[in-house]
Write a protein that binds this DNA or RNA. Structure first.
Lengths: 310, 310
DNA sequence: CAACTGCCATATGCTATACGTATGGGTGAT
DNA sequence: ATCACCCATACGTATAGCATATGGCAGTTG
């Protein structure tokens, strides 16, 4: 049995006549007559009672008709769903976010706008660290991840730059420098640097250390935090200072103040990573939306800093 | 797109390999490869990611797989339902019952046994009069009817005898004959006979009148009742006497007593009628069950009467 | 009453297509 | 480096669905 047979069955039932159904189907009467008969043979039931004026559903045909309609409906849904998936208008995206990324407003805002663009898309978010996210990409646990580059295994991934976020220094309450809006790294070189474990984000970790190096100093490594946002409470507890993405200044943790860093200042780079072979239109589309939104964000950032320097 | 394509799709997805799926499907690898590729072309999506070691579902394929399974399941159900309908193991029967038929225990009992035989069958019952039931058979409102023959239009119906039920006389309380267990019709010939309208059941109506005639008397026609069971309350109200099927003596209406009729006594005949062209196996099966149950019932009836005469 | 009209069934030829066989290409394992 | 595995391509064949032509049956019309 074939879907075509079901379509023929339903059409003949709707028209009450093989001839009428045939012209509705754009075919001739004899082959339709054959197909109906063949369907009846295959099913082992008589679907139509042949009369002089057209055909009439038997009781068995009557019982099977709604089921045939259901299958046809589902087949139509199957086709249209495939089209939507192909055009990136439906589906499901599992998205991974590196530490503290949701705190940068442009990211959640863009995700929100994307969801409004494609309402039939469901999206699940997961926050983790960059190496874990890249591993998740490889084993298909997530479809797309916003990471802090570089990725551990860039060969099998496609990584696109999103933005370079300025960083700030977090100082505990009562620190001698809290009155100064801009601080250089060498001014805090002798104080313990609270930093997250390198395994959880080597890119940003190294960016901070190399900025210290460019400033001609070597930081004293203090307590290690399990994640980027985790450094702030440790600073508040007086265990040292920390360098964090500027978006973390949103966290108005009691007892911590944030201060701009004079050059050479590290930058917190964000990138979006997908599997190299990934050609799911939906994912491609989200990558595109993220890149353009972040490009606009960086442009605005430059304008702000230009305004500040003036 | 075709159901076959869906089956191929699901099988390949389950085996993760076109070669393995091909042998599971009892075919060679190249045509299966072709069919998968053709399905992808028709849908406009890539279902599998070809790898060196077998194939792997793409995200789109993953999204479509459960839908394909659903369609295949429904197709299987469609086929098995057709088989069940063909074998009379599933379906729906609309059954019509002539007046007072449910009061004869053998009928509801047999229906109950039939339902236990075929649990997947739903059955709807409707009580009406014989001419209306035959009309309902013609316009497919019911599939089968237990009537009191003859049918008005026996040409397009198949009618099978079920049983001949004895009749009894219903007398009002205080009647002069209530002490006698057996009464002959001529003993009540001069009292108004409560009988239902002839249009609602000519067979039984005429059987009663011809029994009077055989007894050599002519009844005085009294009030007409709208149905067979409706005569009993009228007898209770003292409007006359009535002749009813023996099963109506189940109704212990206050103020009415039932008495056997000595020969010549009318019989209340029941028959089952279906449309002449009716070949729904389920209906055929129910007719068969009814006939054999009623044959047994009649045999038992003869045995009882034999015992009584002894 | 005869011719006609609709409608379904059967017969036949053609074309499309699904399958099998043979073979090539690329990748990981021995 | 050879081998093994698996997918893709090429080609021939057989099946099957479709169109055309025609027959048969019943109800209708002149």
């Amino acid at each position: 049995m074939d879907i075509r047979h079901l379509r023929y069955f339903v059409t003949v039932a709707e028209h009450g006549s093989i001839t009428r159904a045939a012209e509705a189907l754009g075919m001739e009467q004899p082959p339709l007559s054959q197909q109906i008969r063949q369907l009846e043979r295959n099913l082992g039931v008589v679907l139509f009672e042949r009369q002089t004026r057209g055909v009439r559903l038997t009781d068995i045909g009557q019982a099977l008709l709604p089921r045939a309609r259901t299958i046809l409906d589902l087949q139509g849904q199957f086709l249209s769903t495939a089209q939507e998936l192909a055009r990136g208008e439906a589906g499901h995206i599992r998205m991974g976010l590196a530490g503290a990324v949701p705190l940068l407003p442009v990211i959640p805002l863009t995700i929100r706008r994307f969801r409004e663009m494609v309402p039939n898309v469901t999206l699940s978010l997961e926050e983790s660290n960059t190496p874990a996210l890249c591993a998740a990409l490889h084993d298909h646990t997530v479809d797309l991840a916003i990471i802090r580059p570089p990725a551990p295994d860039p060969a099998r991934l496609s990584v696109f730059h999103l933005l370079d976020e300025p960083t700030v220094i977090a100082l505990p309450r009562g620190h001698r420098l809290t009155t100064r809006p801009v601080i250089s790294l060498d001014m805090v070189a002798d104080e313990p640097l609270i930093i997250f474990a390198r395994e959880l984000g080597p890119g940003f970790h190294d960016a901070i250390l190399s900025a210290y190096q460019s400033a001609g100093v070597t930081p004293v490594i203090g307590q290690q935090a399990p994640q980027i946002a985790g450094t702030v409470p440790l600073v508040a507890a007086g265990l040292g200072v920390s360098v964090v993405p500027r978006s973390l200044s949103q966290i108005h943790a009691g007892g911590v103040t944030f201060h701009a860093i004079s050059a050479p200042a590290p930058r917190a780079t964000l990138a979006v990573a997908i599997r190299a072979g990934q050609n799911m239109p939906l994912v491609t589309r989200l990558v595109h939306v993220l890149r353009s939104a972040c490009k606009a964000w960086e442009k605005q950032l430059v304008a702000e800093s230009f305004f500040e320097t003036e």
